[in-house]
Write a protein that binds this DNA or RNA. Structure first.
Length: 1027
RNA sequence: GGGCGCUUAGCUCAGUUGGCUAGAGCACUGCCCUUACAUGGCAGGUGUCACAGGUUCGAAUCCUGUAGCGCUCACCA
C-alpha cells in the first residue's frame, strides 16, 4: 500500500475557510445573462436586518443552496440572488428601543439624523447576515447582493408606485385602519397580533327620542358610544316594526340618532337568532353603530349614509378636535381622558343615571400592536391604499394558479388567456389553498406607514379653495400624475405623484408652489413585492448596467419560504410581477419549508430571541454536518424540533440551560447562566443579549449553543472522509489507463446499479422538493451500500484488480458529486485527490473532470448500469450473510474466527456467484456442499429460504439446550407467520379480488416460511436423536 | 369561529395511487480497539400505528366522529 497523506478525521474549521476562498477566487457562483446554459434563478427571501440569522434561516438557505448547486452541476446558467430587507417597522423599533435605553427618543433627532442611526444598524447586521450565509456555504452570487433600499430597488419602487397611481390602482382613503396609539402609526392587518383578554359586556340603555321607552345595546367598548351615529336592529326582529322611523337620544352626548334596520345585526337566540352563532348568546338585538371606531360599523355607516364622528386623538385620548363637533356640556367632561379612563367614566355615568342594565364578564380576543403591544384602535385616518381587490391584481394572482391545485373554477381570464396563467405550483400542494383563500377574501392594502425608515411616498399635496384650484392636468402635462378629491370642508386637495426622474425639476417646483411631500413611508412589503424585478434592474436594467438580467433571470425557478409568507409576500410578488411584466410570473414554484422550533416547540424567531446562530453549530459540528441534518429533517408535514444545549465558554462542556418564562408565556434560556462545574463563573446567553438585558464581557462571556441533533451529520461526514481515505489507499498502486472498463465482479455490478438507482431517486425527490428523501437516499447509499457492503466485499480483491479499482474510484467520484450539494465543503476537499486517482474510466458512468467539484457535472448513469440481476444476486448474498452473522451473533462468536458453511447445491451456487463476497462478509473459511450422511459433529443448523444450512467451527462445544431453545423459538415464529399467510389464502374474497401478483407473492412467502419450518423441525429432531 | 396540519418504538421522525412479518436515526443491551472510520463494526429487544365507528378480501394509509397538540385566518355585539 502506497502512503497517502490524509488525516484520520476531518476538521471542518481547518478546511472550510480554505474552500470558501477557493470558490470565491474562481468566481464560480457568478452568473451573467450571456453565460451558457438555460437560466435557473432563485431569489433569496431577503432576511430582515433587525438581527442575525438563526437555524430557521439556515434551513431555508441550505435547501435553496441544494437546489442551486444541483442546477449549477447540471450545467444550467444558475444565479442565486442574495440580499437583505430594510423591514421598516421592525428595524425602526429595534433602533428606537436601543435609544430608549439611553434615555432618548426618535423625536430628539431630526429625521435625517435618525435615519442615519438606523442605517448604521443596518450596515452592521447586513454584514453579519452575509457572513453567516457565506459560512454556511450558500453559493449566492455575492457580487449581485442587494438591499431593498439600494438605488436600483428604489428606482423600481418609484416606477411601480407611479404606474399604479397612473392606472388608478392607488388611492387616498379616509378609512379605518389598525392604529397603534402608542407609536402612532397605521399597521397592516398582519402586523396586528390577536391576544385573549378578560373584558366585559356592558348593556347600555339608550332612551327613545319620543320618550316611549328605550333600547339596550351590548358593547365591549362603551367609550366609543360618544361617537355613535345610529342604533341597528335586524329587520326580522319582531320589535323592529314598532321602532321603524323612530330615533334615539344618545345619552351623555344628547345626539339624536336614527334606528336603522340591517341584516347584519345579530338577533338574540330567543328572538330567532342562530344558537350556533356565539354573538347571538350575548346580543341584545340592538347594535350601537360607531362608524368611526369599528370596521363593521364603518360598513354599516356606508350602507346607511351615516355620519362618521371621530372622537379620538391619534394618541387614543378622547378629543373634540378630530371631527367631533356636537360636544354637549355633559360630554365635555370626558374630553381629554385616555381611552381607558373614558371607558370607566362612561360606565360610571350610565350606572349613576340608571341606564346600565347589566354587566357580564367576557373573555375575547383583542388586536394588539406587535410593535408596542397596546390594543390596536380602529381609527379613522387618511392613508394610501393599493386596490389589490382589482381583477388586474387579485384576479391575476388567482389565474396564475395551477389548475389542478385550484379549488373550483378560476376567475375567467380578462381579456384573454395570458402568459403565466396556470403556471404557479405549490409544494406541498396543500398550501395552494392558503394562497387561494387569501385572495378570495382580500381587502385593499394599506401601504402608508407613519415611520421614518423606508421608501418615502412620492406624492406631494396641497389643499385649495375651489376657486383657487389649478386647472386639471396642469402637473400631469409636465410628466407627473395628479389626483384630486373634495375634503369635508369643501376645499379641494390635489395630489401629485412624481416619477423619480422629475424629482429635481418638478419636485422643486411643487415645493415652491407650496406643495408638501407626504412624510410617510411605504409598507416594507411594497418593495419586497418587487424583489424579483427590482434586483434585476426593472424598469431599466441598462441604467444599472444590468442589461439582459431581467429577460434572463425573471421568472425564477422557485421561491423557498415559510408558511406565513404566502400571504405577506408571495401573493404580492405574484400580483406585481404579473402586473408590470405582462403576466409573467416571478417564479414557477413555491416551496414551503417546515418551521424550525426550539426544544420547547416554539418557533425560532428573531423577535423572541430564541434563535440559534448557525455559526454556533458550524463551530461544534461543521457546516456540512449542519446542512445534512437540516436537509434530512425537512419533511413535508412535520415541523422541526431542535432541543438546544448550551456550551460553557470556560469548560467547553455542553449543558441544558436554565430557563425562564417571559411575560408573553414563552420559555427561553435565562439571560445569565452559571458554569455547571464552577458556579462562581457566569456567562450570558444569546437570548439575554438579544433582549438587551445583558451584554457579554470578558468576565461573563457569551455562551454558544449546540445541539446533539447534529451529531449524525458529523458522523456521516467522518464516514465519507474515511471511505475516501480507504479507497485512495486501495488504488494507490493502480496503473494509469484511459481505456474504459466494464464491471465484471458481482459487487462491482451491484454498486454501479445501486448508484444509478440512487441518482434516479435523488433526481425524483428534488423535483418534488422532498429534501428528506434526498438525504435518506444519500445516507442509505453511501453508508449502508457503499461502506458497509461494497467496501467490505472488495477488501480481499481490490488491490490486485484494476477493473475493481476503476469501479471503486468511479463510484467514489460519483458519490462526491451527488453529496456535494448537501455537503459542499468536505466533498470539495476530497475532490482533488479523488479525481487525480489514476484508474481507468468505467463504461456507462461518464464523469468528466473539472477543476472544482462545484462546477463538475451532475452524474447521469447510462441505462446499461441498471442491472436487475446483479441487484437480485447481491441481495441474496446479503440475506445469506445476515443469516450467518445472526447465528454468529447469537453464539457470540469472535469476529476473527473463521467458520465453515455446509449448504445444499443451490445455495453453494449462489455463493459461487458472489465471487467470494459471502465468504468475506460472513467470515467463512469455506463453503462446502453438505453431505446428509455425514454431518459435522459440532454443526449448528439454521433454516434459510427453505433449506437447512449448517455452520461448524463456531465454538468448541455445542450447547444442546440452548440450541433446542433457539430452534423452538424459530419454529414458533415461522408457525405464526405461516398461519397469517395461510389465513389470507383461505379467504375467498382475497383470492377473487386481490391483484394476481400480490396473491402470487403471498403464496411464495408461505411456501418459503413452510419450508423453513420443516427444516427447523428436522434439525430439532436430529438434535434430539443425537443426544 | 373558519381553514390547514399533527398524534407510529424511550426520544426525534419516515412510511408516495390501500397489499410482504410496520421502518430509520438517536438512546439501550451483548460482543468486537479486525491496518478506512470507536464520530466505528456486528448482532439484539422494543410498537393495540391517539380513540371510536365505517368502507374493503385487506386500513398506519380512505371516510365519519371524538380527544389532545400546533399553525394560520377572522369585522374586540
Amino acid at each position: 500500500m502506497t502512503e497517502i497523506t490524509q488525516a484520520k478525521s476531518y476538521s471542518p474549521s481547518d478546511h472550510e475557510p480554505v474552500i470558501l476562498a477557493r470558490w470565491s477566487a474562481a468566481g464560480c457562483f457568478h452568473a451573467e445573462p450571456t453565460s451558457s446554459g438555460a437560466p435557473y434563478s432563485v431569489f433569496i427571501p431577503p432576511p430582515n436586518v433587525t438581527a442575525a440569522l438563526h437555524l430557521g434561516h439556515a434551513l431555508n438557505n441550505t435547501l435553496q443552496d441544494v437546489l442551486v448547486r444541483v442546477a449549477r452541476m447540471r450545467g444550467l446558467n444558475t444565479m442565486w440572488m442574495p440580499g437583505t430587507d430594510h423591514a421598516g417597522i421592525a428595524t425602526q423599533t429595534v433602533v428606537e428601543k436601543r435609544l430608549l435605553m439611553q434615555g432618548k427618543r426618535r423625536t430628539d433627532f431630526t429625521r435625517e439624523e435618525f435615519v442615519a442611526k438606523v442605517q448604521a444598524w443596518k450596515d452592521e447586521y447586513e454584514a453579519v447576515i452575509l457572513a453567516q450565509l457565506r459560512e454556511m456555504g450558500a453559493s449566492c452570487d455575492e457580487a449581485r447582493t442587494r438591499f431593498t433600499m439600494d438605488p436600483v430597488c428604489t428606482a423600481a419602487v418609484r416606477e411601480a408606485f407611479f404606474r399604479l397611481f397612473q392606472d388608478g390602482l392607488i388611492e387616498r382613503g379616509k378609512r379605518l385602519v389598525n392604529w397603534d396609539p402608542a407609536s402612532q402609526t397605521a399597521l397592516a392587518d398582519d402586523e396586528v397580533e390577536m391576544e385573549e383578554v378578560d373584558g366585559f359586556f356592558w348593556y347600555l340603555r339608550y332612551p327613545l327620542a319620543d320618550g316611549s321607552g328605550f333600547v339596550t345595546v351590548a358593547t365591549t367598548r362603551p367609550e366609543t358610544m360618544l361617537g355613535d351615529t345610529a342604533v341597528g336592529v335586524n329587520p326580522k326582529d319582531p320589535r323592529a316594526a314598532a321602532l321603524r322611523g323612530k330615533q334615539v337620544r344618545l345619552p351623555i352626548v344628547d345626539r339624536v340618532i336614527p334606528i336603522i334596520e340591517d341584516d347584519y345585526v345579530v338577533r338574540p337566540v330567543e328572538l330567532g337568532g342562530d344558537p350556533l352563532d356565539g354573538k347571538a348568546k350575548f346580543a341584545s338585538g340592538f347594535l350601537k353603530v360607531t362608524p368611526a371606531h369599528d370596521p363593521n360599523d364603518w360598513e354599516l355607516g356606508r350602507r346607511h349614509n351615516l355620519q362618521a364622528i371621530n372622537i379620538m386623538a391619534p394618541d387614543g385620548s378622547i378629543s373634540d378636535r378630530h371631527g367631533w363637533t356636537d360636544v354637549s356640556a355633559a360630554a365635555r367632561a370626558f374630553v381629554g381622558m385616555s381611552r381607558e379612563e373614558a371607558r370607566v367614566a362612561v360606565v360610571a355615568w350610565f350606572k349613576t343615571n340608571g341606564l346600565l342594565e347589566k354587566v357580564i364578564p367576557y373573555r375575547h380576543t383583542v388586536g394588539h400592536s406587535y410593535r408596542s403591544h397596546v390594543p390596536v384602535e380602529p381609527y379613522l385616518s387618511d392613508q394610501w391604499y393599493v386596490r389589490v381587490t382589482d381583477d388586474r391584481l387579485c384576479g391575476s394572482a388567482l389565474r396564475a394558479m395551477d389548475e389542478a391545485q385550484y379549488e373550483g373554477e378560476r376567475p375567467a381570464s380578462a381579456p384573454a388567456a395570458r402568459l403565466g396563467d396556470g403556471g404557479l405550483k405549490f409544494f406541498p400542494a396543500r398550501y395552494a389553498k392558503t394562497f387561494q383563500h387569501w385572495h378570495e377574501g382580500i381587502r385593499d392594502w394599506c401601504i402608508s406607514r407613519q415611520l421614518w425608515w423606508g421608501h418615502r411616498i412620492p406624492v406631494w399635496s396641497k389643499s385649495f379653495a375651489v376657486a383657487d384650484a389649478p386647472e386639471a392636468n396642469a402637473w400631469t402635462d409636465r410628466g407627473a400624475c395628479e389626483m384630486r378629491r373634495e375634503l369635508s370642508d369643501g376645499r379641494i386637495e390635489l395630489f401629485v405623484c412624481l416619477p423619480e426622474a422629475l424629482d429635481a425639476t418638478l419636485g422643486a417646483q411643487l415645493t415652491a408652489a407650496g406643495f408638501v411631500q407626504d412624510p410617510d413611508v411605504l409598507d416594507t412589503w411594497f418593495s419586497s413585492a418587487l424583489w424579483p424585478m427590482s434586483t434585476l434592474g426593472w424598469p431599466n436594467p441598462a441604467r444599472f448596467e444590468l442589461d439582459g438580467m431581467l429577460e434572463t433571470f425573471n421568472p425564477s425557478a422557485v421561491l423557498s419560504t415559510a408558511r406565513e409568507i404566502i400571504t405577506l409576500w408571495v401573493s404580492r410578488m405574484v400580483m406585481f410581477n404579473r402586473y408590470f411584466l405582462k403576466g409573467r410570473l416571478p417564479f414557477h414554484s413555491v416551496f414551503i419549508h417546515s418551521v424550525v422550533q426550539d426544544g420547547f416547540g416554539q418557533k425560532m424567531s428573531k423577535s423572541l430571541g430564541n434563535g440559534v446562530d448557525p455559526r454556533d453549530i458550524i463551530a461544534t459540528h461543521g457546516a456540512d454536518a449542519m446542512r445534512f441534518v437540516l436537509t434530512q429533517i425537512s419533511t413535508p408535514t412535520q415541523d422541526v424540533r431542535l432541543p438546544i444545549d448550551m456550551l460553557c465558554p470556560f469548560t467547553q462542556a455542553a449543558f441544558a440551560p436554565k430557563t425562564i418564562t417571559t411575560a408573553s408565556g414563552h420559555v427561553v434560556s435565562a439571560p445569565t447562566q452559571l458554569c455547571p462545574t464552577d458556579p462562581k463563573k457566569q456567562m450570558v446567553t444569546a437570548y439575554g443579549v438579544s433582549a438587551g438585558l445583558v451584554s457579554a464581557t470578558p468576565e461573563t462571556p457569551l455562551a454558544r449553543n449546540t445541539s446533539s441533533r447534529f451529531d449524525g451529520g458529523r458522523n456521516f461526514v467522518t464516514k465519507l472522509w474515511n471511505a475516501a481515505r480507504f479507497a485512495r489507499a486501495q488504488c494507490a498502486g493502480s496503473t494509469p489507463s484511459s481505456d474504459p472498463v466494464t464491471a465484471v465482479a458481482l459487487p462491482d455490478r451491484w454498486i454501479l446499479a445501486r448508484f444509478a438507482l440512487t441518482v434516479e431517486s435523488i433526481d425524483r425527490a428534488l423535483g418534488d422538493y422532498q429534501f428528506n428523501q434526498v438525504a435518506d437516499a444519500l445516507y442509505e447509499f453511501v453508508w449502508r451500500d457503499f461502506c458497509d457492503w461494497y467496501l467490505e466485499a472488495i477488501k480481499p480483491t481490490v488491490q490486485g484488480d484494476p477493473v475493481q479499482q476503476a469501479v471503486l474510484r468511479a463510484v467514489l467520484d460519483g458519490i462526491l458529486r451527488i453529496m456535494h450539494p448537501v455537503m459542499p465543503f468536505v466533498t470539495e476537499v476530497l475532490w482533488e485527490p479523488v479525481r487525480s486517482m489514476s484508474t481507468a474510466p468505467v463504461r456507462g458512468l461518464d464523469l468528466p473532470s473539472a477543476s472544482l467539484l462545484t462546477v463538475a457535472r451532475w452524474p447521469t448513469p447510462a441505462a446499461e448500469l441498471h442491472d436487475a440481476r446483479a441487484i437480485e444476486s447481491f441481495e441474496r448474498v446479503q440475506t445469506l450473510v445476515t443469516a450467518i452473522r445472526n447465528v454468529r451473533g447469537e453464539r457470540q462468536v469472535n469476529d476473527k474466527r473463521r467458520i465453515t458453511l455446509h449448504a445444499p447445491k443451490e445455495i453453494i451456487e449462489s455463493i459461487a456467484a458472489g465471487g467470494g463476497a459471502v465468504e468475506t462478509l460472513a467470515g467463512l473459511s469455506r463453503a462446502e456442499q453438505v453431505d446428509p450422511e455425514n454431518r459435522p459433529a459440532d454443526a449448528v443448523a439454521f433454516p434459510f429460504q427453505g433449506f437447512e444450512l449448517l455452520v461448524s467451527g463456531l465454538v468448541d462445544a455445542v450447547d444442546v439446550g440452548a440450541e433446542r431453545k433457539r430452534l423452538e423459538q424459530t419454529i414458533a415464529d415461522r408457525t405464526r407467520a405461516a398461519s397469517g399467510f395461510q389465513g389470507k389464502l383461505n379467504n375467498a374474497g382475497y383470492l377473487a379480488k386481490a391483484r394476481p401478483e400480490v396473491i402470487e407473492e403471498t403464496r411464495r412467502m408461505l411456501s418459503q416460511v413452510q419450508a423453513d419450518l420443516v427444516a427447523a423441525q428436522r434439525t430439532l429432531e436430529t438434535l434430539s436423536t443425537t443426544v
